[in-house]
Design a protein around this nucleic acid. Structure first.
Lengths: 123, 123
DNA sequence: AACATATGTGCATGTGTGTGCATGATTGCA
DNA sequence: TGCAATCATGCACACACATGCACATATGTT
């Protein structure tokens, strides 16, 4: 085994014992909980995919396709907007929403990478 | 551009308009919402990292390090166990828990891949 | 058997949030 | 200006769930 590879393995398996506070901070830095709590929801995840596949639509058009009330859809979309998950623009009295797929995909990819790194502490 | 590459691009960008029901089913198949709703929680995500870094511990030992009551920690761990996020074994009257890091990392990686594929419907 | 320790569980409480209705605000149109 | 359409928001209600206490259960010890 090469020296370089051995060192890399040591670094990767460096076993650290984090206490509660350290875990708190690491999770906070590497896992965007508010984002995931917004996305990992039956209605909102459905909305994201729906917008990603159907393109830009108004709140009214979207709400027609969902069992929830229009005001409920409006609030869900507003929440997703605050997390940059969807984009919106106002045209007259209508508000058009569309998925911000890149952000969602990136967030999931980042989380996967970070969790992989965080949990691979061996032991 | 090669014919093969052109076809791949077409497939990847094939634009499909899913209705509510189809989105519901696709999300259900490709995003394990119950799993993420279990993991994406301030206390439970902390527990996972804590166990991943500190190795196997009893409920009492774990609870000493957390602000929550021991019974609360017990219930959180039991929930994580039901999603295969942690492993446990009973030794005498003590219950030892440890992180099932592989499952967590795999789930996040799968979700990232699936979301990337689901949301890359162009448009 | 009697007691101590570790954990599970029933219960009450508080908090967050999803939901729909009613209403207000904004914009377009006649 | 008056009216209709679209959306935002205040409000009440329901429900899920996190929490801690008290107690039950299981196991070890004397």
């Amino acid at each position: 085994m090469h020296t370089h590879a051995r060192i890399m393995t040591m670094v990767m398996n460096m076993q650290t014992h984090y206490d509660f506070e350290q875990c708190q901070q690491l999770i906070d830095e590497r896992l965007d909980l508010p984002f995931f709590r917004a996305v990992v929801d039956p209605v909102r995840s459905n909305l994201i995919l729906f917008l990603a596949s159907n393109g830009e639509m108004t709140i009214g058009e979207i709400a027609e396709q969902f069992p929830q009330n229009r005001s409920v859809i409006s609030r869900h979309l507003d929440l997703l907007y605050r997390f940059d998950v969807v984009l919106r623009r106002k045209v007259g009295r209508e508000v058009y929403y569309k998925a911000n797929s890149k952000v969602v995909a990136t967030k999931f990819a980042e989380a996967a990478t970070n969790m992989e790194a965080l949990l691979s502490l061996s032991e």
